[in-house]
Simulated assay, not measured.
Amino acid sequence: MTAMAGRKQFDVDEALRRAMHVFWRWGYSEASIDRLTEGTGLGRGSLYGTFGGKSALFRKSLARYAQTYHPLYEQALSGPHPGPGAVVEAFLRVALNRIADPAVPDGCLLTVSATQFPALDEESRAMVRALMDGLRARLEEALLAAGAGEQEAAKLALCALATNKSLAVLSRAGFPGEDLATVAAAAAENAKALPDRPA
């Protein structure tokens, strides 16, 4: 079917999904324009004309990633949970499920982007940090709702976020799913073992 004059003749959303996978697989530094055009199937003109430069495309890809996966974290954290350990377990299960999905690259786009902070421009760095801070804050809220004290919730949220990111790194290094599940289970058990908040 011939597109009307001036209308894009490709699926913009699908092209963005493919660009997201290129950044996810290679990281910002190694996601060259050649790799982006090959991965999306678009020419340079269409790529720049639709998404802007590489940094703008990266931010759009990061936003697409967050729109896809962060609602899964929200659903997992919404509870109710019987205790802080269950919150950590539910949060990390989302990461394990994503890592186990053969349709997406190993690891996590947010994690690989955080490891390449020096290569990102200021706006992109701010976006990466804001997404991570948002996950941490939501974790704290869920932990408080599950009975953790304020200090306990803050510590557990930071540790759960760190464990989440470490799972992504280990998966990139080829650690099997059984090892990743062991790490996640240990983090949840540690959360369960913390003392109750003062009365």
Rank of each mutant, 00 (worst) to 15 (best):
A95T: 12
G83L: 09
L77Q: 02
R98Y: 11
Q67E: 15
Y73P: 00
P84D: 06
K54C: 02
L72I: 05
P84G: 04
P80V: 10
P71L: 12
Y69G: 00
K60N: 12
R59M: 08
R98P: 09
T68I: 12
A66C: 03
Q67P: 02
Q75I: 08
L62Q: 11
Q75C: 06
R93L: 09
V87H: 04
A100H: 07
H81T: 06
N97A: 13
R98D: 15
R59Y: 09
V88I: 09
L77T: 09
Y65G: 00
E74Q: 13
L62K: 07
P71F: 13
S78C: 10
R98K: 14
N97I: 15
Y65C: 01
S61P: 09
Q75A: 08
V94F: 04
R98Q: 10
V94C: 02
H70E: 10
V94I: 15
A56V: 09
E89W: 06
Q67L: 14
F58H: 10
A56E: 15
A63N: 12
L77V: 08
K54V: 12
P84V: 13
A66I: 12
Q75R: 13
Q75M: 05
G79N: 09
Y65R: 04
A56F: 04
A90F: 06
G83T: 05
G79D: 13
G85H: 00
N97H: 14
A66W: 07
K54Y: 04
A63E: 13
R98T: 14
H70N: 09
S55L: 12
R59V: 03
A66K: 01
E74I: 07
V88C: 01
A86D: 15
Q75Y: 05
R64E: 15
V94W: 11
P80Y: 13
F91N: 00
R64F: 15
A86E: 15
R93D: 05
H70C: 07
R93S: 03
A66Y: 07
P82Y: 05
F58P: 00
L96Q: 03
Q67A: 14
A100T: 07
H70L: 11
N97T: 13
G83R: 03
A95F: 06
G85M: 08
L92F: 01
L72C: 01
L92Y: 02
T68N: 01
A100C: 08
L72S: 06
F91G: 02
K60I: 11
Y69I: 00
A90S: 06
E74K: 06
S55I: 07
P84I: 05
L92E: 01
P80N: 02
D101H: 01
S61R: 04
P71D: 15
I99C: 01
L72T: 11
A63Y: 06
G79A: 11
A95I: 09
T68C: 02
A56D: 15
A95R: 02
A95Q: 14
L96T: 08
L77M: 02
V94Q: 06
R98S: 08
D101V: 02
R64W: 15
L62D: 12
G83E: 03
K54H: 07
P82M: 08
F91Y: 15
L92R: 00
L92N: 01
P84Q: 09
R93N: 04
R98M: 14
K54T: 06
A76P: 03
A100L: 04
Q75W: 11
Q67Y: 06
S61E: 14
V87S: 04
R64L: 15
D101M: 03
P71W: 10
D101E: 04
P82I: 10
